[in-house]
Each structure stands twice: as structure tokens, then as C-alpha cells.
Computed example of a mutant assay.
Amino acid sequence: MTAAKALRLLLFVVLAWQLTGCGFQLRGQLPLQLFDGVYLQAERHSELAAILRQRLQSHQIVLLNQPEQDSPSVYLLHDSLERRTLSLFPNGQVAEYELIYQVRYSIQTPGTKAQVFEFELFRDYQDDPNRALAKARELELMLAELREQAAQRILRQLGRISA
């Protein structure tokens, strides 16, 4: 092994050691395993709640049927989608919308009061009346992406609070 290769290997090992020593974690890894389970309350047919349940289960977290004192609780208070007109075609039909997905939720961890959080996610959506079916499918995909992003954001907040 040459001196240059040995130096690179040593540098790599020191860099990896420093990253693990400072508590760095990849973005997909959440420190949610501190708790045995999480209680999630939401409206009955909430698509955001369904995504959250799926993400929690993928992290091997038990979903509780009722709140418990030693487990965090997540309450989805409100999620809604608004459309704001951005531009019009010359004939007066809407050419472009801004989609605004609003989420309001609270998290209560053991020994603390519930904290309320809210955020908005934005997307631009170009409408074309000549391609209504394709644009409807594009809108569905965009909404699914917004819900997925909202669920990840809620889980990151839960991870930060519980850490």
C-alpha cells in the first residue's frame, strides 16, 4: 500500500468517525425508536393520516389505539387544499393555479403539553382544458406528493421533539 492510499484511508476513517461522533444521521433515519408506540388521531378517511400510519409502521413503530402516558401522541387537526389563480388564457379560462396544502397538527410527548404546529406547502399547476384527463391525473399525483412531503415533515418534527 502506498503512502498516498494509506493517507486517503486514514482521512476517510477520521471523517467517518467525526460524523458518527457528532450524532449525524441520514435524513431517512428518525430517532423514533425511543418509544414503544405512537398514538395517531385524525379524521376517519384522512389520506394524510393513512400515509403517516404507513410511515410509522415502516419504522417498526406500533400504532396505539388510545393515548398512553409514556408514548407520544400526534393529532392531525386540519389539512386542506386551496387553489389560487395565477394566470389566465386570453379567453378567460384559468391557465395556471397555485396549490396550497395547509396542515395543522399537534404533538404531545410524555411529560409535556401539546405543541401545535402548522405549515403550508406550495406547488404550481398548469391547467389545459384540452387535456382534462391527463391534467386530472397530474393533479392527483401532485396531491399525493404533497401529502407524502407533509407526512415526512410531521415525522421529522416528532423525531426532533422526542430526541
Rank of each mutant, 00 (worst) to 15 (best):
S106P: 00
G92C: 10
L7P: 00
D70G: 01
L10Y: 09
L81Y: 11
T2Y: 07
V116S: 05
L7S: 05
Q66D: 04
L48H: 02
V38D: 01
D128G: 04
A144Q: 13
G92E: 08
V14E: 02
Q93F: 15
E120P: 00
S162A: 09
Q115L: 13
L19E: 03
E140I: 01
N130D: 13
G28S: 13
L9C: 03
Q57E: 13
S80C: 07
P110V: 04
Q29V: 13
L76V: 10
E82H: 14
E68H: 01
I51Y: 10
D79Y: 13
L141Q: 12
A114K: 04
A49T: 03
F12Y: 12
G92K: 03
P31W: 13
S87M: 06
F35K: 00
M1I: 10
L48I: 06
G92Q: 05
L141N: 10
I61W: 01
A163T: 10
E145A: 15
Q29N: 11
R44M: 09
L121S: 11
Q115I: 10
I51D: 06
K113M: 06
N130F: 14
P31F: 15
K5L: 15
F122H: 14
Q69W: 04
F12C: 06
E98K: 01
T2G: 15
V38G: 01
D70C: 02
E43N: 11
L48F: 13
R104L: 14
R137M: 09
S46G: 07
P90M: 11
A6K: 10
L141M: 14
Y75I: 03
S106W: 04
D124P: 00
